[in-house]
């Protein structure tokens, strides 16, 4: 058992990411549910809910707070180059670890290098697509503000 842990300790990091992501999704869901409960009270009193409360509803449940999936929000378009840089540096670091056979885990580091590189490339492509499509999204948002879609 101890030998197994020594061989696969690094699995704790990616698996923790899934667990934290699931927990964040639950918290995001709770937040929007509470906001909707509050809106129900505003509706019962015939009042207009505050804009900040409405903004709570615009975040997807699997938003991780890093701007992921917030393609409609300006924050994502600003932050993606930093994320590309971060994952690229991580990929280079893990590549170095693989080439040096650090802790005797060359194969594991190769896989992590591949994953980090894939995330960097995906973030780059996603960011470029969001930037190119930004004008369309801005137009769509402006149109929705002027003429809100009916339920």
């Amino acid at each position: 058992m101890e030998d197994l842990f020594r061989s696969y300790w690094w699995l704790l990091f990616p698996l923790s990411w899934f667990i934290i992501g699931g927990w964040n999704s639950w918290l995001n869901y709770r937040r929007s549910r509470d906001a909707m409960d509050l809106m129900r009270q505003y509706a019962a009193q015939g009042k207009e809910p505050p804009p900040d409360l409405m903004r709570t509803l615009s975040y997807p449940v699997d938003d991780d707070g890093w701007g992921r999936r917030r393609y409609r929000h300006y924050g994502y378009r600003r932050s993606w180059p930093a994320r590309v840089a971060m994952f690229s540096i991580l990929a280079v670091g893990f590549y170095w670890a693989a080439s040096e056979n650090l802790y005797g885990a060359e194969d594991a580091f190769k896989i992590v290098t591949f994953v980090m590189g894939a995330i960097a490339v995906a973030t780059l492509v996603g960011g470029l697509v969001a930037r190119l499509g930004g004008r369309d999204l801005d137009r769509e948002l402006d149109r929705d503000r002027r003429d809100p879609p009916s339920p």
Partner: peptide, 9 residues
């Protein structure tokens, strides 16, 4: 509100 309709869809 429009945001609510968008979320429902």
């Amino acid at each position: 509100p429009a945001e609510l309709a968008r979320m429902a869809l």
